[in-house]
Write a protein that binds this DNA or RNA. Structure first.
Lengths: 192, 192
DNA sequence: TATTTAGCTATACATTTGTATAGTTTTTTA
DNA sequence: TAAAAAACTATACAAATGTATAGCTAAATA
């Protein structure tokens, strides 16, 4: 939970200067760069500001030179595009449903690439987005036209919603392991 | 047409290291950072590489610390996303549901900031994410715990799903304009 | 073959840079 | 009104950092 951390006028000013410097140069300002823009004669003033801004969650910094990064919070607060992203976004392919017989990962089936936050999807390789066709999973509120965020993994728990490849077509089902080697894939819509 | 000034294997390697460092840290590596990754004992070796890479148009640098930037040419050459300027995601606040009486935009209600692709949300200001509480809209497959992507606009069409502020609490309903000045907000779950 | 380029080592050096110490003044807040 | 927080000045310092000097070897080029 983000705490109530409003900024003073001067702190906001420092944040703006950092944003503008990065937008103009593509690398972080040094503490003395900021001091000069503000007209301050000592680096300590700016250093204090940066400490507060980091504590309030508006910037990230390390001890190495020119390493100030703006967080999502500050980018939203400033109402600007991010010149340097805090967390990476991964471009995931949006897979549609293609004619039977062709594998879903065929290039004709990639509709577009959409950036998805790692905060949402994590960094696992092989993740993708899948457009749902049909209403066989409407009992789980997965309906026609929905876009599923699919995590690729090797194992599944009983009862989990999984994507199975049946005859090269992707089907969304619940996974149930049964006695022996058989596996049941169940639709959540009783009509199926 | 971009002129392809070819790189040697080692120069390409340096370029890759710079890309990966920026992608991981969001700020440029120092010359000695690169030397360490390459296993070189002197900064001069890397410095020579950077001079060549800049002459060939793959990087930009200045004399200040950690100021290496990758050019469009090198990003194209590497076949990767731009690690320093990501202009197609906006950071949106994820709003939760708080105790009655407090406005939903209160800072205590901002749970985190999540980057969302402009391909999904567009670039409208004032957009936000809202965590759903309760099942009054389950008929529209909006259920407890879902995250809604909310577009801020001034008008609504009859029958559209909208977020209304009732006593400072956000409620998700369908919007129906009726004769006269009254407006009906309807739940999609008949139990409500 | 002669010359240039690529790719280094080792060392040195002047800045740049983040951080610290020790204060002062102003503005908020309780 | 007293205390705390914010916002500075001035100075110092070690570490980080880009750059330079003076070499070396191997590969590519003319």
């Amino acid at each position: 939970m983000v705490k109530k951390e409003s900024l003073t006028q001067k702190q906001l000013n420092v944040l703006r200067i950092i944003y503008e410097f990065i937008a103009a140069n593509n690398y972080s300002p040094s503490i003395r760069n900021i001091a000069e823009i503000l007209g301050l004669s000592s680096p300590k003033g700016v250093s204090d500001h940066l400490t507060v801004l980091e504590k309030k969650g508006y910037i990230l910094k390390s001890s190495s030179a020119r390493s100030i990064r703006l967080t999502g919070k500050s980018l939203w607060y400033l109402g600007v595009q991010n010149p340097s992203i805090e967390n990476n976004v991964d471009y995931l392919p949006l897979l549609g449903s293609i004619a039977a017989g062709k594998p879903i990962f065929a290039e004709e089936n990639i509709q577009e690439y959409i950036p998805v936050s790692n905060q949402i999807m994590g960094k696992t390789k092989g993740n993708y987005l899948l457009k749902v066709k049909g209403d066989s999973m409407s009992g789980d509120h997965i309906v026609d036209g929905d876009i599923l965020m699919v995590k690729t993994q090797n194992t599944a728990e009983n009862g989990e919603i999984i994507i199975a490849l049946v005859d090269n077509e992707a089907v969304v089902k619940r996974y149930y392991r049964r006695v022996g080697e058989t596996v049941e894939l169940r639709s959540s819509n009783p009509l199926y």
